[in-house]
Amino acid sequence: MTTVPVVAIVDDDVSVREAIGLLVRSFDFAVELYGSGRDLLSDTALDRIACIITDIHMPVMNGFVLSDALRARGFNMPIIFMTAFAGEGYEERARESGAACFLNKPFKDTDILRCLQNTLKLPPD
């Protein structure tokens, strides 16, 4: 029996979070939705998450701070960073944080699928 990877989506914009969740579910992944980095960090079952897709720009805790907090707690699951406001140095900062992938919003469905397949070492469709 094959276990379906759980992908966590972290974005403060509920419409974006839900849309990306629906998209990722359509690729046959299990999805957990979080409105903030704090919401994700308060989940007592973080070890079930195979990959995180997080927005960079969020109030209180941005995606980079979330990544640092996860690493400080010993969690090393891959993180896909996404942003609609790619500032100078963001992609480099994401790479330094160990980003599995970096996406600029809006992105194509195939872009996020490719990132997930590469990150989770899944065969292409």
Rank of each mutant, 00 (worst) to 15 (best):
T2Q: 12
V4Q: 11
V7A: 09
V7D: 05
V10T: 03
V10D: 02
D11K: 13
V14T: 15
S15Y: 04
V16H: 00
R17A: 08
E18C: 09
G21L: 07
G21C: 11
G21N: 11
G21D: 08
L22V: 08
L22Y: 08
L23Q: 06
L23R: 03
V24L: 08
V24W: 02
S26V: 15
D28W: 14
D28Q: 15
F29N: 12
A30R: 13
V31Y: 12
V31Q: 11
L33E: 09
L33W: 04
S36E: 03
S36P: 05
R38E: 15
L41W: 12
D47V: 12
R48Q: 13
R48H: 14
I52V: 14
I56Y: 01
I56Q: 01
H57R: 05
P59V: 01
N62D: 13
N62S: 09
G63H: 09
G63D: 08
G63V: 07
V65R: 14
L70F: 06
R71A: 02
R71W: 00
R73P: 00
N76V: 02
P78I: 08
I79C: 04
F81W: 03
E88H: 10
Y90Q: 03
E91T: 01
E92T: 04
E92S: 10
R93Q: 10
S97N: 08
G98L: 04
A99R: 01
D109Y: 09
T110N: 14
D111I: 00
L113D: 06
L113Q: 09
C115D: 04
L116S: 07
L116P: 10
Q117C: 09
T119P: 03
P123N: 07
P124V: 13
P124F: 07
P124C: 12
D125Q: 14
